[in-house]
Design a protein around this nucleic acid. Structure first.
Lengths: 213, 213, 213, 213
DNA sequence: GATGAATGAGGGTTCATTCAT
DNA sequence: CATGAATGAACCCTCATTCAT
């Protein structure tokens, strides 16, 4: 429906929303500022978005794409491969690889979308708006995949445990994702504190590998 | 410097700041509301605090006390005991105990001070204000203790590794604390998603135990 | 940059700033009042001026124009004429005329812009804000012209005096301008005390004429 | 009525009112600040003064004393002397002396009480409060003396002029006082502009001498 | 498609002033 | 005589949001 000029304006508004979010933080993110820096007027902003939260939601689309590609797909691929090679437990090296890929992926995605993800994280405690839902969808996808991975091998190994296993797997997947997400969110501070990115990745991967089957 | 009546007023203001923070969230935390609910006027609030952030900072004092007592002290105690029984590596059971205590401690403290800690988490990253500093001090204490724990046994086991060990230990301690803090911060959501508090504690403890020597 | 409608609003705001300044005085000059009387809202005021002082500064533009036209130009004209008729010292009558013109001009301009000029006068001394600068620019123009006039004839008469002359001329010009400005500023009170405007003009003119060459 | 301790407190409050007036200007003169700097509390301030204006009024007492002694008395003395030596017009030298004394006196008093006098000057346009009255009393005394001086000789010289003379004398006295007061009020700025205090005094004295009989 | 202009609504903050002790 | 504590009453200013063009 939208013409080419409109598309460009919308893009510019989104870009500057992200830019200013990173520069000034969420609390100082104002429609007037976004519009001015985008070279247009506040009124124009409202032709494309209902409010700021709405614009952030639109920005989340890109994050979703990255998360799906770099995190969830990696786990799912691993699962598929394992299913094909059904018989044996997965190779030790494969798990280590997966762990490192996940750790790196989290770090990369947070480095890229940090400010945006931090806002989402924030809102997730105060209210139950659409941003909170978005966060759930984002991380739940990954954590569900990890849960599947945990269960897949559990089932294979000792198939007689019952429902406890499911809860256990879910708990562990939550815990792992929490770790990955929070380290990723604070990577800047940690690196400032004297830990290299590599050491961080390695430590995360090790924790993951220790839990994955 | 403060009289008894003043102390009481200040307390009431702090209490209601916390109360309203939990009820309405940070973004809707207003001096006028705090004052009204505390049975005083906005002007009175400003006699005790420069602004809202300042009041939150004061509230952090209590959190600090809890963290020091329930988290850091536990690790330090463990370290002291181990040092006394110097010869052998610590007992397997002791580690498991410590891990469970830490996990439980984090969950408890975050359950108690959740709203406050979530705000602190939020601000960290956006800016470098005093709240960010407070967060660092809070978690750095715990993570430093864990780092010491990791190094203490490393030295005992194979004493010839070099500086890498230190960075590795630091990275691991950061990762563990990040896990603990973030699970604790989102425990409510996780429990809503169908994981019992016990399962959560167990999963955290397991991750901890896997990493601790 | 400003549209026609905006210009009109801005004008109305300026007009009412001046009006209320005269009616209520500086200390009771409030943005809310100005806006209400101008038929708009405080928010609108702030779209055109950063604060009240800023609006006053804008109003000073008109005063500047009047001062330049009615005071400085008069002296400069006199100087030009005298230069042309180089040979002789200026006629006694010319000086008397100039003096009367200046006296009348000061009285008229202060009668017209009194409240504004009084504010400017006030601020000068307390701080070094933009209003203080404006006052200097305003009166310095006149006083510089008078200084030139004093020196022009001094040079003609006895051309060998030295640098003292310059300081003397400057001091005298300051003193004369101070007299003119202060009488003009308090003309209302003086007239209330039983002195006619004519008598005042005459007295000022006499003082001027006594000093001018 | 007031005990010794009370007197001391009152003195301290007055001293700091003046001090802060000079330091921050009238608009930023606050009861709380005065009290704090005086080492007491706002409540105490109100035990001695109804409000800030009231305190300033009290401070004006000292100014009055200086004005009476250094300005009015000088003129009156001159008048008395002249009356005694009735026959002749006053000596040329005497007038020059008087002029210089007056000029110097004004400069000195304003240098000493500048901030206070500037406030009085300010209020004298906006309203008709007690401060405005005080200003009138202050300068009217001097100007009345000068008027008497002008008339004394006029009467002596050509005793047949009529009521115009009185108005003329009044106008001239107003003009002279306005000059003296305004130069004195802005002496700081003028000196900054490169005129020495001596040159200023001389220029003022010359204007005076030219007008006085 | 874009925007100049306007504003309702409300939050932050200040300060003179008053009691009760 | 002094003051800790409290506050009513404003004021300043900002910002999301809406029209009319």
């Amino acid at each position: 429906m939208p013409g080419a000029r409109g598309q460009a304006t919308r893009r510019r508004l989104l870009d500057l929303t992200l830019e200013l979010l990173g520069r000034n933080g969420f609390r100082d993110l104002r429609v007037a500022d976004i519009a001015r820096e985008a070279g247009t007027s506040p009124a124009t902003f409202y032709q494309y978005f209902d409010d700021i939260e709405n614009a952030l939601l639109a920005l989340m689309g890109q994050v979703r794409a990255d998360v799906d590609r770099e995190l969830q797909a990696v786990v799912e691929l691993h699962l598929a491969v394992r299913e094909r090679d059904s018989a044996a437990a997965s190779q030790h090296d494969d798990i280590a690889d997966l762990a490192r890929q996940l750790a790196g992926g989290f770090l990369r995605i947070w480095a890229k979308h940090g400010p945006l993800l931090r806002v989402v994280e924030l809102q997730s405690g105060d209210d139950d708006g659409p941003l909170t839902d978005e966060r759930k969808r984002l991380l739940n996808g990954v954590s569900a995949s990890i849960e599947k991975l945990l269960l897949s091998s559990a089932n294979a190994a000792n198939a007689a445990e019952g429902p406890t296993d499911v809860e256990e797997a879910k708990a562990t997947s939550f815990v792992l994702v929490a770790m990955l997400a929070n380290v990723a969110a604070h990577q800047h501070g940690m690196i400032s504190a004297g830990v290299s990115l590599e050491a961080l990745t390695e430590a995360m991967a090790q924790q993951l590998a220790a839990a994955l089957p």
